[in-house]
Design a protein around this nucleic acid. Structure first.
Length: 454
RNA sequence: GGCGCGGUAGCCAAGUGGUAAGGCCGAGGUCUGCAAAACCUCUAUGCGCCGGUUCAAUUCCGGCCCGCGCCUCCA
């Protein structure tokens, strides 16, 4: 199988291959900022990257993939949150990191091999900034901050095709006064007591104490953990400019070699047809949805329903459709015998995924393949391989909802009525159960209850 | 203003220069006392609009309309 993926820099679909002699594929995925629960749009990106990780493992072997996803634990938003709550920065970020990990587990995301934090790599960031200053790519501003001098990197803008003159100038840039040019961006931000609270580290030589800029953290952690040139760098489209553009500038000017051989950006998730935002009331976190009774795995399925490079519209209807499709897959899996089947449904599924992550194509191929053969002809390992690639864990279930004692009592009475062949009474009790929100499932040897589906 | 993406059945969504995958919903059926599950069958002469190229276009080209995203610290 050849893994092909669109490259945002070259704007063409290219094969993914390890470039280092050790054969290890180096994969860096920009992670979340841990100051609040991640929303399902964030998780779309992480699900897409999780499928990439799984495909890389299937293609090169688990030992030949190194996947890094960072945690941004110091920036404007984390510091603001910390000040708002009056709690130390580290306490805030530790809390939200734990929540993030719970959500990742619920969505069946494989753990990255390394999950570095910005605050854990201050020294590396400072050191890169010093190299950039020595090479003339960065300068100290009057307040002790350090800025990258864009004019020293003529290739700037290749990824986003942005020209300096095209930048919209409506946003007043807060630190414009300190910079030689409005387009220069911060590598190091001098400590501001009124904004930064207790957050500061010793800065690069000649610079003031303060904290790193956002962009340098990814450059430094990628370099520290994966080396100067990596095989794949990914993130959401919104990171394309300026974040990734700036990373390229910093890393290539510092290291003198190409930064990432392949760039990939997944599109945004829309909710109810528009950007998700708290003010629009269409803002969903995973835990909100789970609290409302939705399965986390159905959320993952819903995030797989669209092509990763197209905006995907998430609605409660699409979540219901996802949950139903998941039930169909569970039934299909249950019907496959443990051994003996020869038809491998993973082939068409993996082919679609390997072709630039065609998620809907892969899902379509899966159902088509399932329909084409009798369950007894299907190979269980093949089915499981397809589901592994998609990261759908069919065993994962929403926690069982507790059945109220009164409902259980109704069910027992109905079962007794049915055994006595008093069907009129049985039907009346079924109606009562339904009114209470429960469906009673009869079997030959007994019964069970489940919440009524909408 | 600059850069980019998209408009395919009730909903979601692939795809192809030769006449539209799949999922969900819905309808009918088998089964079941009923219900649920499972299984079977059906559901776009049509792919935003108008031109053009072609033997043939939803698929290529041009124009237009509509929607969405990014444009300095949002995945």
């Amino acid at each position: 199988m050849v893994l092909r993926l669109h490259d945002s820099l070259r704007r063409e679909t290219r094969e993914l291959r390890p470039s280092h002699p050790d054969g290890i594929f180096r994969f860096y995925n920009c992670g979340p900022t841990v100051y609040a629960p991640a929303h399902i749009g964030n998780f779309r990106t992480f699900v897409v990257n999780d499928v990439i990780r799984r495909l890389l493992e299937l293609e090169f072997g688990p030992a030949r993939v190194r996947h890094v996803r960072n945690l941004t634990d110091v920036d404007d938003r984390t510091i603001t949150q910390s000040r708002k709550e009056g709690r130390p920065l580290a306490e805030i970020t530790r809390h939200w990191t734990a929540i993030f990990h719970e959500d990742c587990a619920a969505l069946n995301l494989l753990r990255p091999h390394a999950e570095p934090t910005a605050t854990g790599y201050i020294r590396e960031q400072v050191s890169m900034i010093e190299v950039l200053m020595e090479k003339g790519h960065a300068y100290r501003a009057a307040d002790g901050s350090v800025y990258f001098r864009l004019a020293t990197f003529p290739e700037y803008g290749r990824l986003s095709r942005i020209q300096e003159r095209e930048l919209q100038v409506t946003n007043a840039v807060a630190d414009a006064d300190h910079k030689d040019s409005v387009s220069d961006f911060a590598l190091w931000k001098a400590y501001k007591p009124e904004e930064d609270g207790t957050v500061q580290w010793p800065g690069p030589r000649t610079a003031a104490a303060g904290r790193p800029g956002w962009h340098i953290e990814c450059s430094a952690m990628s370099k520290a953990l994966l080396g100067d040139t990596i095989d794949l760098h990914t993130g959401g489209v919104d990171l394309l400019f300026p974040h990734h553009e700036n990373e390229i500038a910093q890393s290539e000017c510092c290291n003198g070699v190409p930064f990432a051989r392949h760039w990939y950006h997944s599109e945004h998730l829309l909710v109810d047809g528009t950007t998700m935002s708290k003010s629009k009331g269409n803002y969903h976190t995973l835990r909100d949805l789970v609290a409302k009774g939705h399965e986390a795995m159905a959320v993952r399925y819903a995030l797989l329903m669209g092509h990763p490079r197209k905006q995907l519209n998430f609605t409660l209807d699409s979540l219901h459709a996802a949950a139903s499709a998941l039930r169909t897959l569970r039934a299909a899996r249950a019907a496959i015998p443990g051994a003996g089947g020869t038809v491998d449904v993973s082939a068409p599924v993996l082919a679609a995924l390997a072709d630039d992550l065609n998620f809907p194509g892969a899902l379509g191929a899966l159902f088509t393949a399932l329909k084409a053969s009798a369950p007894a002809e299907l190979n269980a390992a093949g089915f499981d391989r397809a589901l592994f690639a998609l990261g759908l864990d069919l065993a994962a279930r929403a926690p069982a909802v507790a059945v109220p004692a009164a409902v259980t009592a109704l069910a027992e009475r109905r079962w007794a009525a049915k055994q006595a062949r008093d069907f009129a009474a049985a039907d009346a009790l079924r109606a009562e159960l339904a009114a209470a929100g429960w469906t009673m499932l009869d079997r030959k040897d007994g019964w069970s209850l489940e919440p009524v589906r909408k």
